[in-house]
Design a protein around this nucleic acid. Structure first.
Length: 119
DNA sequence: CTCATGACTAGCT
DNA sequence: TAGCTAGCCATGA
């Protein structure tokens, strides 16, 4: 059975599976936006679908905490349970959060990966 | 079918 | 940086 690098999403997979693969492809200590995940799954503009799948598959080992809004902020309301949980998980991975927001690296610096690298 | 909702975005002030 | 707006799309009432 061939294991495929999730960089090039397999067209034969369902949209949901491609999105889940893109989420799992975000390495520990790094974060990515909903829209970025959607694009990497071959579904530009479907950020809300990414959010739905995250909620649906929470608790299945999916690295949901590494997914943030396009402006670098946590999508949950500040102070909410999910917000605190995500803050804690990201902190455990060394992601620098300031007031519920990661320091967004300049896109020009990471054109290759499209994944935010908080260093 | 229409309407409301939401872990969203991009653009403009 | 913060608000506000319009656009977006899958779901469920």
């Amino acid at each position: 059975m061939l294991t495929r690098m999730p960089n090039q999403p397999a067209p034969e997979l369902s949209a949901a599976d491609r999105i889940l693969a893109a989420i799992r492809a975000v390495p520990r200590g790094q974060v990515a936006g909903y829209g970025v995940i959607a694009r990497r799954a071959g579904l530009p503009g479907r950020a809300r679908l990414v959010a739905r799948l995250l909620a649906e598959h929470s608790g299945t080992g999916l690295p949901w905490h590494r997914i943030l809004r396009s402006d670098g902020r946590i999508a949950f309301p500040p102070g909410s349970e999910g917000f605190l949980e995500q803050t804690q998980r990201l902190g455990a991975e060394g992601v620098d959060l300031r007031n519920g927001r990661v320091q967004i690296p300049r896109v020009e610096d990471s054109l290759d990966t499209e994944i935010w690298r908080p260093d």
